[in-house]
Computed example of a mutant assay.
Amino acid sequence: MLELRHLQTLTALRAHGSLAAAADELHVTASAVSHQLKELENYYGVKLVNRRTRPLTFTPAGNVVLKLADSILPQVIRTKNNLKRLAHGQAGRLRLASECHSCFDWLMPILNQFRREWSDVELDFATGFDPEPHHLLSESDIDLLITTSDLDIDGICYQPLFTYESRLVLSPTHPLASKQLIEPSDVVDQTLIAYPVEAKRLDVIAKFMAPADLSFAKIRTTELTAMLIQLVASERGVAALPDWVAAEYEKKGWIVTRRLAAQTTDQTTAKATGKTTRQTLDNQKQGVYCQLFAATRESSSDVAYMQGFAKLLEGLVKP
């Protein structure tokens, strides 16, 4: 029966031309090499090696086996190496998703560096528009989620990235552009242009409108940031974007941004009682801020390439 050890023996014989030299490479005795060769020749009833030549040569049958060895052995070596890298967390697949649909501007340099440092790890991306992206993480459908929601879920851990301000995005000719601080009541008659995610997951809803118990007149969705900007610029509605995203388009003069008045408990109480304190006014000026996290499974925290990606994120500077 033909085995891997037989293929290795024949390639060693070809490389060194003698039983003794081949035995040294294989870390066995010359008699063991001779025995393997006889065993194989007897099993198939065909001669493989011309032993009397110096260096020894191969018969047509021996060359057939050598051709197989040249095809099979490199694959075996690659597979063994891959298994070793997998066992040490140096190879595998890293699947990412992001609830922040404008994050790839700052994430791309990190991904490029990761590819250079972890060339054996395949990077893959899942859509961030899933209604329950944390569930995808729990079910191992993804390995890392960029999110603003650090939900308390067993087995999920969060690495803080940076804080950003959510800014209201307007056409330069929009009537609200004359205001520097936007209240929830200012936009109740407006159409919100947003990404296609659940309304409760949008920063402007969760941290600005919902605390004031108010809502937009309508929500229109688009998956593309460029289309969102175009719709706002053509006065089809207003939007809310992270400050670093909106700044790029504001510099071009396509849109303007305004600060959203933070809706705090003090402010809600003041509205109910008709009393406005200095602390309330200060809170209004603070704006609406959100924390961005990288969520992963605790079970993957000891995987080397996951640790490598986390290390790169540690050096992240807010865009």
Rank of each mutant, 00 (worst) to 15 (best):
V49G: 06
I77N: 05
G237R: 12
M306S: 03
W244L: 09
V245H: 10
F104T: 06
L170Y: 10
L170V: 02
C157G: 09
Q75G: 14
T9C: 10
L312P: 07
V64P: 00
Y43K: 11
M209R: 01
R52G: 02
L7E: 04
E235C: 03
T257W: 08
Y195W: 13
A270D: 12
A261S: 14
E248C: 02
A247G: 01
A212C: 02
G287Q: 05
W254N: 05
K47C: 09
P160K: 03
I205L: 02
M209W: 00
T222D: 14
N63E: 15
A199P: 01
D243F: 00
Q113T: 09
L192N: 07
E122D: 05
A20L: 05
G128T: 05
Q180W: 00
H134C: 05
L145W: 11
A87I: 08
N283F: 01
R258T: 00
T173C: 06
V303H: 05
I77Y: 09
G17T: 02
D141K: 11
L151A: 12
K179Y: 04
I72W: 11
T147N: 07
A199D: 12
L312I: 01
Y249K: 09
A240H: 03
R78G: 01
S140Y: 10
E132P: 00
I77W: 07
T280K: 01
F162E: 02
N50W: 13
N50K: 13
L192A: 05
S138C: 11
H88Y: 05
S119T: 07
S31A: 15
S178K: 10
V232E: 08
R5V: 07
G89P: 08
D243L: 00
K252I: 03
L241G: 05
H6P: 05
F208I: 01
E132A: 12
Y43L: 10
A246I: 07
I156F: 10
Q190D: 13
G274E: 03
L316M: 08
I219S: 06
T257Q: 09
I146S: 06
W244P: 04
Q8R: 15
L292H: 12
Q284R: 12
E39T: 14
L228I: 07
Y158T: 01
P319L: 07
L202Q: 13
P55G: 02
S300T: 15
N82P: 00
R85K: 14
F293S: 04
P74D: 08
M209T: 01
E298R: 09
S301G: 04
E132M: 07
S119F: 15
S34Y: 15
A91F: 02
V317T: 13
E39Q: 15
T222C: 14
L192D: 04
L224S: 11
I182M: 06
A217L: 09
A97V: 02
V232M: 13
E248Q: 11
Q230I: 01
C290S: 12
